[in-house]
Simulated scan of single mutants.
Amino acid sequence: MFHKFKYHLKERGVLGTAKRFVDCWQVNGFRYTFKQMFKGYDNQSFASHNFQKDLTYGKKGRAKLENTYAKDIESQDKYYTKYRKDPIDSRMLDLLNILKKEKGVRGVVLYPLSYDISIKQRPEHLLKALAEEGYLCLMMQIADSHDVSKVQRLSDRLYIVDLFEECLTWFRDKKPIVYISYPFYKYLINYFEDAWFIYDVLDNLKIFSNYCEAMEEDNDFLLKYSDLILYSSQALYDQNSTPQNSLLIENGVWLRGF
């Protein structure tokens, strides 16, 4: 039950944990903050798809996590490669209708969702800012069913869509901005011929579901490969060998939302 709380104590100490609790309390209220701080690691908080939850420790546990992480990547990669050869016309048309409606944008930003969208988090805020600057931003979910597509307009030029496969197919030879906040999606670099990649380092990798050495390797690759790297805190910025194409963008709030 207290996995998350113990993690905060270990990483931040008593004062740091208390500060994080108070900061979250002031923004989200006591009830939400208490539930978040004292619940166990929740797989849905870090991934939009149903990964197997496994927090077993030791060599056997680490091998299992490594295997699960690699298998999930392999299965998605194979599926999208196959889908790209024979996309569903009606779903592709839904994507094209969005592009037609939003004609004249400065560019397109694709974001593979990596958290529970019911809770607003940092990526949505950054995408909202980019949308206000004239970019069409598509937060891509994996579809539960291909019968009917789901398109939700959050604000001007900002959408949640379950057209994950269609976006990978349509934009493969275009020049989108691909925004990644979870190392798992490193494999997406294989789907674009000329995309511009942003990698957002949100937190210590150890809090992510299925944390393993392969995830560390994907993280290291993205730090070297990406065109722009963002850091959410000074600590994360200092922990990494930070290249020139890096920005420290600490978390904040939309003042007009209060």
Rank of each mutant, 00 (worst) to 15 (best):
T169L: 04
F208H: 03
G29R: 06
R157E: 03
G40T: 11
D23I: 07
Q76A: 12
S149E: 11
V27D: 04
L222A: 02
Y79H: 13
I160H: 05
L168Y: 02
C137H: 00
Y199D: 00
Q76R: 13
P112N: 06
Q52N: 08
P87A: 06
K71M: 06
D227A: 10
K150T: 08
R172P: 00
W196G: 00
L168P: 00
I117M: 05
S48I: 09
V14M: 05
D23H: 08
I88L: 15
R157F: 05
F2I: 11
K103R: 14
L93W: 09
K71F: 08
Y199K: 01
C212V: 02
F221Y: 11
K175A: 07
H146S: 05
R62A: 04
S181H: 04
D89W: 02
I119D: 09
M37F: 15
V161M: 02
T81W: 07
R157G: 02
D194E: 11
K19T: 12
L55A: 12
Q141R: 07
S149T: 15
H3C: 12
K19I: 14
W196N: 01
D203I: 03
L188K: 07
E66I: 07
D116N: 14
M215Q: 04
N251Q: 15
A195D: 04
R172G: 01
Y111C: 00
L247V: 12
Y199C: 01
T169A: 14
F184E: 01
K60I: 09
I177E: 01
R31H: 11
F208L: 08
S155W: 06
L113S: 01
F38G: 12
S90C: 10
R122D: 04
S45D: 10
Y187P: 03
D77L: 09
R91G: 01
L138T: 00
L188H: 07
Y7G: 02
D203W: 02
Y185D: 01
Y83H: 11
R172V: 04
F184L: 08
L55Q: 10
G134Q: 07
S149R: 13
N43K: 15
E66R: 08
L222G: 00
M215V: 03
R256P: 01
S181D: 15
D173S: 07
N190Y: 06
Y191S: 09
A214G: 13
L163S: 01
H49E: 10
F192D: 04
C24Y: 13
L228N: 01
